[in-house]
């Protein structure tokens, strides 16, 4: 910490310091001079820091305040809430839809992300590698609405694949066709949305794991190679174990992103009731439910959507904390 060597100039955290120059007498033990500039500046930085605490508390508080109507309605008259069976019956399918789509996105994206990260750090030609890493970073910056637009344009191409899936794998509930044996003819299903989500979180997981892989101690890698390991053995013995906690936290951060991702799902999915099958239209996620209904919402409906947002906030909070816990736990062992 930079301050540890510099304690004489200013008090900790710029807190009001009663015995600085103007207040205390000159005869006391020599004290370091605290200039007004120091006071003002340290107070300003402190205020900025505290503001962050306030903002986060504010997020929770104001969402709660606006959810008041929903909570009242839930207590007095659950049937007035959308769906007619109370708030939990309303929010449950949304939570399930959110979790399913994020889980699929994560399952699809993680292996590819690891592949790309390994490729760009350890397998690509030396000259090409930084360029590839840079391209991946650029792709992480593409706005989600553009992914949504792209997903809409291409969703129709997936219907043939979904038909094939439902024909051969229809006995698995998630690929089951409609009652009349068809699948969504626009391709705008939860599976499509999840696949687009996986493409969206791919660059994020990749760039995080890439950074971890780049930090693998060179000596360990070279030692492995010197002992006669093939490149894959070297990766398995030195790169992957070193990056384990990093990979875990990267996937969790990817999951957090997928959970809260709104636009791609809101644009691609044609929402409906919760169904087990992912190749027919139906299902909905929290973020997309809010986005699709918020512009027209008023009164109780508005409050409901804000409460749903609060639920999403809590879920992502839990996921992020879990990610941090994993990192804390594994990194102690690793280092």
């Amino acid at each position: 910490m930079p301050t540890s060597t510099q304690t004489t100039v200013s008090g900790p955290a710029g807190a009001p310091d009663p015995d600085s120059r103007p207040a205390s007498g000159p005869a006391q033990t020599p004290k370091a001079v605290v200039r007004p500039g120091d006071r003002i500046f340290s107070a300003a930085t402190l205020i900025a820091g505290i503001l962050i605490l306030l903002i986060l508390a504010g997020v929770a508080l104001f969402l709660l305040a606006q959810s008041k109507d929903t909570i009242n309605a839930q207590i007095s008259d659950p049937s007035s809430i959308t769906g007619g069976h109370g708030f939990f019956a309303y929010v449950w399918p949304l939570v399930v839809g959110t979790l399913i789509s994020s889980a699929i996105a994560l399952l699809v994206a993680t292996p590819f992300a690891l592949g790309i990260a390994l490729f760009t750090t350890h397998m690509a030609p030396r000259k090409l590698a930084p360029v590839l890493g840079y391209v991946i970073d650029l792709l992480a910056a593409i706005p989600s609405v553009v992914y949504g637009l792209w997903g809409i344009a291409l969703a129709g191409n997936l219907t043939a694949f979904y038909l094939w899936l439902s024909k051969w794998f229809g006995w698995i509930p998630i690929f089951a066709p409609d009652a009349d044996g068809s699948v969504s003819n626009t391709g705008r299903t939860l599976l499509t949305a999840s696949l687009v989500l996986s493409i969206m979180i791919l660059p994020i997981i990749t760039s995080l794991t890439r950074e971890i892989f780049l930090q693998t101690p060179r000596l360990q890698e070279e030692a492995a190679l010197a002992l006669g390991a093939t490149r894959w053995e070297m990766i398995r013995m030195s790169v992957l174990p070193f990056g384990k906690s990093g990979i875990a936290s990267a996937t969790m951060l990817g999951l957090g992103r997928a959970l809260g991702e709104t636009m791609a799902v809101a644009m691609i999915l044609s929402p409906g009731l919760l169904t087990a099958s992912l190749v027919v239209s139906g299902n909905q996620t929290i973020a997309s439910e809010i986005a699709q209904n918020f512009p027209e919402a008023a009164g109780l409906r508005l409050s409901e959507l804000i409460t749903v947002g609060l639920v999403l906030f809590v879920i992502t909070l839990l996921v992020n904390m879990a990610a941090r816990a994993i990192v804390a736990k594994t990194s102690v062992k690793g280092s």
């Binding site: 709104t262 804000i306 999403l312 992502t316 904390m321």
Partner: peptide
């Protein structure tokens, strides 16, 4: 760290609320 993970739509809901 926690703030980095706030879903963007929740940030919007907060400002609106």
């Amino acid at each position: 760290d926690v703030m980095t993970g706030i879903p963007s739509i929740v940030a919007g809901l907060f400002a609106f609320a």
